[in-house]
Simulated scan of single mutants.
Amino acid sequence: MDDDRPDVLLTGLLFYDLVLTGLGKPPTPGEEIWTDGMGCGPGGIANLAVAASRFGLRTSLATVFGDDLYGQYCRDVLAGQEGLDVSLSRTAPGWPTPVTVSLAQGDDRALVTHGSEPPYSQDTLMGDPPAARTALVHIEAEPREWIAKAAANGTHVYADVGWDPTQQWSPGLLDQLALCHAFLPNETEAMAYTRTDSAAAALGALADLVPVAVVTRGGDGAVAVDQTTGEHADVPALDIDVLDATGAGDVFGASFVTASLGGWPLEERLRFAVLAAGLSVQRPGGALAAPGWYGVDHWWRSLTDPGLRRAYGFLADRLPADPGPPLPRTPVTPPARHP
């Protein structure tokens, strides 16, 4: 409580997301399909930022807002409604906020995006980054200078990685893990970068490169190793109907960081992250579907399954006495004047 550093520092590209849910089948040219649901809100890096902030973490976001209606709406939501520190962010005159349309069908979704590179790079936004307890980063083929600076000033770097469109999966990218405290790829990415054929084998390879290695497995849960404590954990996913998977991986990462900052055992950290990600896919959208303490508390108090009550019994001692009021959810359309 006497540490006044930001709990989480992050930077990345912001999107205005429009999510369509309940598609019976993919659209085809010349056809009009009506959907059962729709939502809109900030996306991209906002998914991580809001998920962290809703767990009470002091979250500092460096991103670029367009000077259009979408950019202003996203800034209002993130800074005003969600309470993020956006002092490291910039508004770019004449640059349109990138827009993504997400078509959610079954357990997955297709994305259609329009946008361009922002006029300010991550390194420009961050400069000499402030010391923080953690940083959530997305490592890419071209290393970002600010990540090395953050690691040097004592910030614990939690990293993930994205799909490689070239499908070369260069193992050299993993050299950046020398700067990281934790790495949280999904199963496909982990196996591709480590040239292994199972999540367990990939986890073993990654555990030699980074203190905390986590491999997410979608409907099969997640596995992890913490070399700093000698712990290993393998937890299943929850049986949850998926409405929209947008941002679920980001909610997982932010939740794992939340529990890690609390000093929880590895299995509890992993179960908590799996739960939060599972709760997020029951609502449309990415950022504003994050459950926060309120959503987790509501799930726990409503839970009747005896097996899950035992598996998640640790929540009785972890949940805050006051989880806060119900959270704002993804609106169908943005209000004409957002507070």
Rank of each mutant, 00 (worst) to 15 (best):
D3Y: 00
D4Y: 04
R5A: 00
D7Y: 00
D7A: 13
L9S: 02
L9T: 01
G12E: 04
V19L: 07
T21Q: 06
T21E: 09
G22Q: 06
G24I: 03
K25G: 04
P26Q: 10
P27F: 00
G37R: 01
M38K: 15
G41W: 01
G41P: 05
P42Q: 11
P42D: 06
G44I: 04
A46V: 07
N47C: 09
A51M: 05
A52P: 07
S53P: 04
F55N: 04
R58F: 08
V64I: 14
V64S: 03
D68L: 10
Y70Q: 13
D76E: 15
A79T: 04
D85R: 01
V86W: 00
L88A: 11
S89L: 05
T91D: 00
G94N: 09
T100L: 02
A104S: 15
G106S: 09
G106V: 14
D108H: 12
R109F: 08
T113P: 04
H114E: 11
P118G: 13
P118V: 13
S121G: 12
Q122I: 06
D123M: 10
G127K: 09
P130V: 14
H138W: 10
A141D: 15
I147P: 01
K149C: 01
N153M: 04
H156F: 07
Y158T: 09
D160M: 00
P165K: 09
G172Q: 15
G172S: 07
C180P: 06
L184A: 08
N186A: 12
E187N: 10
T188A: 11
E189T: 03
M191C: 15
L203R: 01
L203Q: 05
A205Q: 13
L206K: 02
D208A: 15
P211A: 02
D220W: 03
G230Q: 10
A233E: 05
V235F: 00
A237W: 01
L243D: 00
L243N: 00
L243Y: 04
A248D: 01
A248L: 02
D250N: 11
A254L: 08
S255Y: 03
T258H: 14
P265N: 13
R269P: 03
L270V: 07
F272P: 01
A273N: 05
V274I: 13
V274N: 09
A277P: 02
Q282T: 15
P284D: 06
A290G: 13
V296F: 05
W299R: 03
W300R: 10
S302V: 03
L303Q: 10
D305V: 03
L308A: 13
Y312V: 03
F314P: 00
R318T: 13
P320C: 09
A321K: 10
D322N: 14
R329T: 14
R329P: 11
P331A: 11
T333H: 12
P335Y: 09
A336C: 02
P339D: 07
